[in-house]
Design a protein around this nucleic acid. Structure first.
Lengths: 233, 233
DNA sequence: CGACCGTTTGAGATCCTTCAATACCAGTGG
DNA sequence: CCACTGGTATTGAAGGATCTCAAACGGTCG
């Protein structure tokens, strides 16, 4: 369900991540192939394997990206917030499924119109490259985390990463379920829950509501995340 | 130790992955900022955190890319062969360490000279983007593998991936140690060894030498890799 | 209130790790 | 030629972190 489509003219395109640093002319070219979209929580933006005909920029809200194995096992590749692009495959099909975790506002760029711009707008291809490179860097950090960290280190890293991503060092919003967190970190829902409980007991975090976590002891979290914490934690 | 530096004029640049599809003029521009290098097995190309002043293209041989945690735990991000680029960060520092597994031939592009080309050679930025996007796709496949697959599924997937990468469906070269494989898959060296032994016992693979693995039963491997194999394996 | 859905908690099982011993292989020097 | 050495791989036994299965809890909504 597409809640709303705003005429392109009403959007401040120069403020979008896609256009930042590009000239006004480039910005208007980009505006010409884009439209604003709203999605409710729990909707699918596109599926892994779909024809990649659009690039999206998130204006507000949060999405989850994931891949599935044939038997249903899921790996979440990331949680995206405002300012991030997605659907950035230079060719072919989407490599993951994108679903909204909250209500989301998006700017959509049609690939058909976008293609020409990439080669003609100076700096645009480079900008797309930079976005993809950043996504790669995050994927590789996640690899390190999933492959070599313990459950406690993963959870601590996750909490700090969300705080960083959301720009709120002391409290994070958690619109994703425990199951989402588990599928992001390579853990089960029970292990996520148990680990959070342990952090609560130790006073490192507080959970006033299911979708809020207060980071009470930032330093302790940092230690837990990097794995050089005292043995009694 | 740099074994050899070949004058740029002697290299067939048009055949390099970096230049493929670009014009002859673009190719000569790129040639102007590049040089050929050889490295022996076991050398470091660059370290995680180093100033990223060069982009490399592999001409022959194999490298490993990895990140380290403060306490020494290692996660290998990939094994690279001929035709792959590395060091492709659009800015800043290298995000991983690169070491040679075998003797390696490389084409090196200095960033200082390369920068200008990116904005001036039509199609180049897009090409770099495509390379980074491909690296991202591989990182995300690896995420799925490490986060959600069992040891047997990981090993089977690894063997098939190497066969694909090396273009030899029936036998793969294994210049990396068991420890490398473990650090790539998020397993210990013992689990890697035990899993390979099991595959040997079941006749799915054969190991004539430590650095060779024959894939005897490709179909069985595919089944094991995707996780929908019969329970008795 | 009662149903529902996600979370938490518990108990037991398991896969993988850890620790330790042995085997293998290539290189070296007697 | 062969013992010795160092490094990597294999194998075994035991332990532990995480998973699985199951029940209880807690908030939300009609």
């Amino acid at each position: 369900m597409q809640l709303q489509t705003v005429p392109a003219a009403k959007v401040n395109f120069a403020a979008l991540a896609m256009c930042r640093g590009l000239g006004t002319q480039a910005t208007s070219h980009i505006a010409a192939v884009s439209s604003l979209q709203r999605k409710a929580a729990g909707e699918t933006l596109f599926n892994e394997g779909d024809e990649a005909d659009c690039i999206y920029e998130i204006t507000s809200g949060m999405l989850r990206l994931y891949k599935l194995l044939p038997d249903g096992r899921r790996q979440i590749m990331g949680f995206l917030t405002a300012g991030h692009l997605l659907g950035l495959a230079p060719e072919g099909t989407y490599v993951y499924t994108a679903e909204t975790l909250t209500d989301v506002a998006l700017c959509r760029y049609r690939r058909s119109g976008f293609e020409r711009l990439i080669d003609n707008v100076p700096g645009l291809a480079r900008r797309l490259w930079a976005f993809t490179a950043d996504e790669l860097r995050m994927a590789q950090d996640q690899l390190m985390m999933i492959g070599r960290k313990t459950a406690m280190e993963k959870i601590a890293s996750f909490l700090l990463m969300q705080a960083e991503l959301q720009g709120t060092p002391d409290e994070i919003r958690v619109p994703m379920t425990r199951s989402d967190i588990g599928d992001y970190l390579g853990l089960t829902i029970e292990t996520v829950s148990r680990t959070l409980t342990k952090l609560k007991r130790d006073g490192v975090i507080a959970v006033p509501r299911l979708d809020r976590i207060e980071l009470c002891d930032h330093d302790q979290l940092e230690e837990l995340a990097s794995g050089d914490a005292d043995a009694d934690f």
